[in-house]
Design a protein around this nucleic acid. Structure first.
Lengths: 234, 234
DNA sequence: GATAAAAGATGACTTTTGTCAGTTGGCCAA
DNA sequence: TTGGCCAACTGACAAAAGTCATCTTTTATC
């Protein structure tokens, strides 16, 4: 029985967003034959830190948080991954367990691609390897910037930055509210602070006319105000 | 006039420490012919953030700090690089200016390898590309861990961790003092705090019998005490 | 729609961290 | 030797962040 056209990797537009676009038709066909589609419900984990993965996950739909629990038991969200992102790639290449946990922030659809399909292509398709390398180099730059932000900026600045990031990355709806809705606790885990302080700071932003809230939904009212704040001009 | 044997890349043992070991004899010869050796005095910069690099620097001797100035004007040291490290590699691959500044912490000897020597090898030697990829994947894991530490740990914990890191990475002299001697300001810039708090915290550690100091030199007295501290059991 | 559970919000307080204004002490060069 | 300079150090205070207890609102479920 033939699968639907759009469920085949060769026809999947998602791959234009990641390193898989460097693969040839035949290679994609082989991957498509061995891949497994999976639905992940909001709140479910794709994998947990330390786990040995048998392959990578290509995100077709939905959003996932990648986090790690520090020695003091607090969770830190390191990245928010959505459509096109390939999860588990890094740990597969360095041949370790995953360093991060991946939990769905809303309902997701992912394709699981077995390990040997990826490692095989890294062995025999230099263009693919180079694409991953370039992507990883970029990720490393982002990580370095993140380190500097966490180390040197205040919660105020970091929260302002996160709100702007959510706006530019995931966009806003017709009413101007951020499309990606996170719990206050999750926002705090991205910012790297306690939930209470996150809530208080949001309330302060609201009082200052920078944002507006409606339940857990957030609307940015003064983008340039937030940008100034993030750069330290308070 | 023939160069000294040990100044040729083919004979340089340093390359065993990095991705260059994946190169073939002829490739190394070509690199050797185009490389330029350079001496950097303590305090001098190899490059500054934002600069476009014409190649990479392979560290033969000495230690360099890699840092970035945050929007608030404070410097954050992201990495301490020594013998074998290749600097500028990441920015070359992602074809951007450097994200970090590199400043010598003591007198250094480096080899400058022109850009096209590296990009050329990435194009035509898959083993080399894979070696860099694997290294970069590992660096990314370290960066993620760093993010979690900066975000979730106290200055106490982070300073304890830095001292242990300096000890295991650069070792101690006959008297037990850390071999790599950093100014208090540099230690503070690694930890991500103000110099005064760094000094105060060192004084506290001293009072607790965890360390001993003599001028700017530091000796670890109670390693397991520091390890407990770093993991949050104070 | 009632009820329980979870998430959001707030007050009061403590701890941690940052800042400013000094003093001390070692090192180098004239 | 002396003066100047810089890094190390200290005290006093202010600001930022974390914690705990409690209350309110929202959401989910029967």
């Amino acid at each position: 029985m033939a699968e639907h056209e759009e469920s085949r990797c060769e026809n999947c537009i998602i791959r234009e967003l990641n390193s898989l676009k460097a693969l040839k038709k035949e290679e994609l066909k082989a991957i498509s034959d061995s891949k497994v589609s999976r639905s992940i419900k909001k709140g479910e984990a794709l994998f947990k830190e330390g786990e040995k993965l048998g392959g990578v996950y290509c995100v077709r739909n939905g959003v996932s948080k990648l986090s790690k629990i520090s020695d003091n038991g607090k969770d830190q969200i390191v990245k928010i991954a959505s459509k096109g992102e390939v999860l588990g790639q890094r740990s597969m290449i360095s041949e370790e367990g995953t360093n991060l946990s991946a939990v769905a922030l809303n309902d997701m659809e992912v394709c699981f691609i077995p390990k040997d399909q990826i490692t095989g292509r890294i062995q025999d398709n230099p263009a693919f390897t180079q694409a991953i390398l370039k992507h990883m180099a970029h990720e490393l730059k982002i990580a370095d910037d993140f380190i500097v932000n966490m180390a040197q900026k205040t919660v105020n600045q970091r929260l302002a930055e996160v709100l702007l990031y959510l706006s530019t990355t995931f966009g806003t709806d017709e009413e101007g509210y951020l499309v990606l809705i996170l719990s206050r606790a999750d926002i705090a885990d991205v910012v790297g602070t306690a939930t209470e302080l996150c809530i208080r700071t949001l309330a302060k932003f609201k009082k200052q006319g920078l944002i507006e809230t409606k339940g857990k939904r957030i609307k940015i009212l003064d983008q340039s105000g937030l940008e100034k704040l993030k750069d330290g001009f308070q």
